[in-house]
Design a protein around this nucleic acid. Structure first.
Length: 217
DNA sequence: ATCCCGAGGG
DNA sequence: CCCTCTGGAT
């Protein structure tokens, strides 16, 4: 199947099944989203949503988080992955947010990436969700699923390469949705270890299902 | 043993 | 490029 046809089928299928896809992280404002996305690295959204209510109640804005001790922040996030690193990142992030950006969430990739704990993926999530920009954040799900269903070539071995492949072929108006479609599909159908190919509507043009693809990431 | 909406440092 | 961080679910 041609590349163009794969993208067309992909968009057609998910437009019907997930008309309005969005993040499953709970948040009430851009600051809370930034905190939640930093915490979500190598951790399930479900777990973040379990600890975020108490965290947001104690640190509702950059000021309280910047003034907090790393130990106290740690006590709120001890059940997520890499709590030591993330506690330092959160306090550092809040301080930079206040000193460099007046407490506002930056709106460019370069500025966002100056914040501790914020890499390209997190920056693109913020740009997409907060500022409605057509950016493609490539996480573990996007990376894996894109390869399996042939939206990215196997030669795209880095998240940036996958990002470029997707951006080159997905119409701008579908980019934010496609980001969430790939995540939802990866989370609930196209699982890393034992993908549910028997219920997958995309298997007819899936390289993984054809066993032409063995790599994950 | 492997994976989860990665990032920082060497 | 590599390595480390490191809790909980499957």
């Amino acid at each position: 199947m041609q590349k163009r046809e794969r993208f067309r089928r992909f968009i057609e299928y998910f437009t019907q099944h997930y008309p309005d896809p969005k993040t499953e992280l709970n948040f009430g404002n851009p600051f809370e989203l930034l905190v939640a996305v930093i915490l979500s690295a190598q951790c399930t959204d479900k777990r973040i949503n379990q600890i975020s209510p108490a965290l947001f109640a104690r640190f509702p804005e950059p000021e309280s988080l910047a003034a907090a001790s790393v130990d106290e922040v740690f006590s709120y996030i001890r059940s997520v992955s890499y709590p030591n690193n993330k506690a330092k990142h959160l306090v550092g992030m809040a301080n930079i947010l206040l000193s460099k950006f007046g407490g506002e969430i930056p709106a460019t990739v370069d500025e966002l990436q100056t914040l501790p704990g914020v890499g390209r993926k997190t920056a693109h999530v913020i740009l997409s969700v907060v500022y409605n920009e057509p950016t493609m954040a490539v996480d573990t799900h996007v990376f894996r699923v894109s390869h399996r269903i042939g939206l990215a070539p196997l030669t795209a071995t880095t998240p940036l390469a996958v990002e470029k492949a997707l951006m080159a072929h997905i119409p701008k108006q579908y980019v934010p949705k496609a980001h969430h479609w790939l995540i939802l599909h990866g989370r609930y159908v196209c699982l890393a270890r034992s993908p549910k190919c028997e219920i997958c509507a995309l298997r007819e043009f899936c390289k993984y299902y054809e066993k032409l693809l063995v790599v994950s990431q």
